[in-house]
Design a protein around this nucleic acid. Sequence first.
DNA 1: ACAGTTATGTTATAATGTATCGCGTCCGCA
DNA 2: TGCGGACGCGATACATTATAACATAACTGT
Lengths: 125, 125
Amino acid sequence: MRWTPQRERALELLLRAGGPVKAYDLVATFQPGGQTAPPTVYRALDALVELGLAHRIASRNAYVACHRHDGEAHAASFLFCDCCDAVEEFEAPVGEVMAAIKARGGFQLRAMTLEAHGRCSRCQD
Amino acid sequence: MRWTPQRERALELLLRAGGPVKAYDLVATFQPGGQTAPPTVYRALDALVELGLAHRIASRNAYVACHRHDGEAHAASFLFCDCCDAVEEFEAPVGEVMAAIKARGGFQLRAMTLEAHGRCSRCQD
DNA sequence: ACAGTTATGTTATAATGTATCGCGTCCGCA
DNA sequence: TGCGGACGCGATACATTATAACATAACTGT
Ligand SMILES: [Zn+2]
Ligand SMILES: [Zn+2]
Ligand SMILES: [Zn+2]
Ligand SMILES: [Zn+2]
């Protein structure tokens, strides 16, 4: 897995956005003047996910830079506000869940994602 | 929220499948002889999710009947096999996670989904 | 019966994601 | 230094997934 200008560019855009970004937003903004072919964008994003620098948020069809921005493996956990579209990554304590999976036997865990949906503090009025 | 033939039909198909079903599979099979308009299918599926009788599996763009098949609210938790496409709903112990969300304050939780990815017992050879 | 709400039908279109093929570039190795 | 394989990128076309918008029908309570 190499570190390339495309991937750096994608990560830069994710970080600058500071939140979830849709693939087709990058299709529009990847290069300053004009469009980029979708496969180019998807490949860059997939690489970032593979490298542990970003997460894919399946329920929103979006990608977001990992808040840790080192490539350490961890369960990707997010809080989603139903009202505004705020999304925040947090460190969910998934120890019990992992233990339960181990306890039921036969399943070899590789990765875990967790989505909590509700109302953020700003949207409770 | 009414209980209608469309919704019953959708649930019947999910139950019969016994696993994740894609919306466009239902588009093809919803009525015996021919296609159904996508909005009809999506509306029926959305209603089932709303009623707590099914879950949407975002990472697969698929729907599955809830293993409890009563409408009780609960965290939707699934084990996904990376090799075969087996998916199993299980009861993840998310108490700690919910407590952590409460503890950080300001977020009013409504629903939670959890996806565990790895290899099922049949795929570890 | 009436009005308000909820559900369905229909058409078209938007949004999201991949297959494929060819070419260039990088890296390890002889 | 030359070779060979793996990896990355560009480009085109296409497949899949989901929704907008509007009209009609069915149900519900009064
Ligand atoms: Zn992260
Ligand atoms: Zn909010
Ligand atoms: Zn369930
Ligand atoms: Zn398997």
